[in-house]
Design a protein around this nucleic acid. Structure first.
Ligand SMILES: [Mn+2]
Ligand SMILES: [Mn+2]
Ligand SMILES: [Zn+2]
Ligand SMILES: [Zn+2]
Lengths: 166, 166
DNA sequence: TCGATCTTGAAAATGAAATTCAAAATCGCC
DNA sequence: GGCGATTTTGAATTTCATTTTCAAGATCGA
């Protein structure tokens, strides 16, 4: 899946990788789980990307670093990363769960092309504020929100236009 | 699933049922499909509710009116209703697709309790405007958006608070 | 009425997510 | 360093909503 990005952030620095691993290790200790080489490999592979990865996509990347790591472990580790706020699930409504970096990352939303699946990220303070306002109004203790815009990107409109002429 | 409602609209009038059926029949003719008793029964059952129904929930209601109607027909008819804008899918992220009335209904969004699954509806012009703004900015032809707030409702907080004391 | 076309619904297939379980690894403790 | 209780791993299996299949039945224009 293609990714068009608004911000062109550099890949994550070694210090941030160490910091992120520290967060994972601390979380593991806190909930009585154990450090493993698999979990570290999966975290490092995840940090190496800036995409919105499905479990399967991350699994394929992890396999290159250690072919013995199984799909189930990747699936379970992604849940762990979400637990300690290193990753968060993004809903593109294509029927599969996707994850992206969350640590040291500015909160943002996505506009998704329903033709090619590519996406752009955008920022909106209004949406953040709305969560607070509506939560207060109806006495919910809000935890998160989900906001996506769907449409057809310029490239796909051009392609489809050309196809129609033929 | 419980439904707390902001607006307390009366159940749909006979005129609106007729009107909605007209819209379905017109759509069927337009795309070369046929009128059937099953489709009419499913539409009427759907209009009788004001909930956010899963296919299975609607199927159970339809069965009471005509036990011979199968799950697959309900599933397919809900897609038809969405096609002709009588229904729309709502994403509560509980793993199943839900549908609600769309015809003559003000556009709105949902705040969902992650404990009990109940929801409140709210209105926001800002969100509608944001779809336009972001679409224009990144040259997407936008078709729709999806916005939900998640949290814990007051009732669930009370219950959990009580449980904690015990 | 006729017949081409569409519909129906039980059954099967699909596919992502979740669970199972026995062998292997971790880590606090001595 | 080694012990052993506890957790992890990963292949295999299960789950479950959704989607497809297909043969018998219904629709509707001519
Ligand atoms: Mn993103
Ligand atoms: Mn609603
Ligand atoms: Zn596109
Ligand atoms: Zn609740």
């Amino acid at each position: 899946m293609l990714q068009k990005r608004i911000d062109d952030q550099p890949s994550i620095s070694p210090e941030m990788v160490r910091e992120a691993q520290g967060i994972l290790h601390q979380h593991l200790k806190k909930v009585g789980l154990k450090q493993t080489a698999q979990r570290d490999t999966i975290l490092r592979t995840f940090l190496d990307t800036r995409e919105h990865l499905s479990t399967d996509e991350l699994y394929r990347l992890v396999r290159k670093k250690d072919p013995k790591i199984g799909y189930t472990t990747v699936y379970r580790t992604l849940k762990l990363l979400a637990e300690c706020r290193l990753a968060s699930e993004v809903a593109f409504h294509d029927g599969i769960a996707r994850y992206e970096h969350q640590y040291n990352r500015r909160s943002h939303h996505h506009m998704v092309c329903t033709d090619c699946g590519s996406s752009v990220e955008f920022f909106s303070n209004e949406v953040e504020r709305l969560e607070q306002d509506i939560g207060r109004k109806y006495r919910y203790m809000t935890t998160r929100h989900s906001f996506q815009i769907y449409g057809v990107c310029e490239d796909c409109r051009k392609k489809n236009g050309a196809a129609r002429v033929v």
